[in-house]
Computed example of a mutant assay.
Amino acid sequence: MIRERLKLIFIYGIFLGLYSCSYRNEKKTNFEVIFNPAMLEKVSYQMVNQQVFSQKCISCHGDSGGVNLESYSSVLGHLEKIKQSTIKDRSMPKSPYPKLTEADLILLATWIQAGGPETALDGSTQPPVQTEPLKPTFKSIQQNILQKKCLICHSPGNEAERVTLNSPEEMIDSPYGIIVPGEPDESGLVLVTLPAARKLMPPPKSGFAALKPEEIEIVKDWIAKGAKD
């Protein structure tokens, strides 16, 4: 009787092991295969860049982090890393930024499955999205720079919350000398973004791309004009 019970337990254990392996393999397969076959001929870099890279990735990566996403040739050279981090591991974008939506993942996976074409394989094109250029106004700087690269740390509950960047008035009144109206070369908002800054912002370890020279010039122009709305 005891022998029969041990035999049953042994057989049950083997069954559970086989079922578990089968489940893991099935889950992995379903997890990875999410591309849309009907879209393979239509996807292009322009489409993926407009919906995914420029909207949810470039503010962090830009030309930093070892994975440049600012040009087609660079993205093409990192297809395996992109596939691993976004589709397989789903570790990108990093918290607290929102994860890619299911539509984002399907589009990205379909494009990678198609070989990462620069233009659609069927020759179709789509009109480029019109983006408003960065201007020397607080609203434009806030939307294109502060919200994307700064407020993740400079907000309540985060490590740099004491240095607030929510309004021109707060930055002008700050004891940290964030903005000196009319004096961009004396303003901390400019000084910490210069390549030679002792404490460069955004910090390199954060993974955010450093401000481009043209972005710094826009910020300087805004401060030089009085740092008003």
Results as ranks from 00 to 15, higher is better:
I2T: 10
E4F: 06
E4Q: 10
R5I: 15
R5D: 15
I14G: 08
Y19V: 05
Y23V: 10
N25V: 11
K28R: 10
V33C: 06
F35N: 05
P37K: 00
E41A: 14
Y45H: 06
Q46R: 07
Q50A: 13
V52I: 10
C57D: 03
C60N: 01
H61A: 08
V67M: 03
V67T: 10
S71H: 09
Y72C: 06
S73P: 03
L76Q: 08
L79R: 06
K81N: 14
S85I: 11
T86L: 06
I87T: 03
R90C: 12
P93G: 02
K94A: 12
K94I: 14
Y97T: 12
A103R: 08
W111S: 01
Q113H: 05
G116S: 11
E118T: 10
D122W: 12
T125R: 10
P127F: 04
T131I: 15
E132V: 01
S140D: 07
I145R: 03
I145P: 01
C150Y: 03
C153P: 12
S155C: 04
N158G: 00
A160T: 15
E161F: 03
V163M: 09
T164E: 12
I179P: 15
G182H: 04
E183N: 05
L189P: 12
L189S: 14
L191K: 14
M201I: 12
P202W: 07
S206P: 09
F208C: 07
F208L: 12
A209E: 07
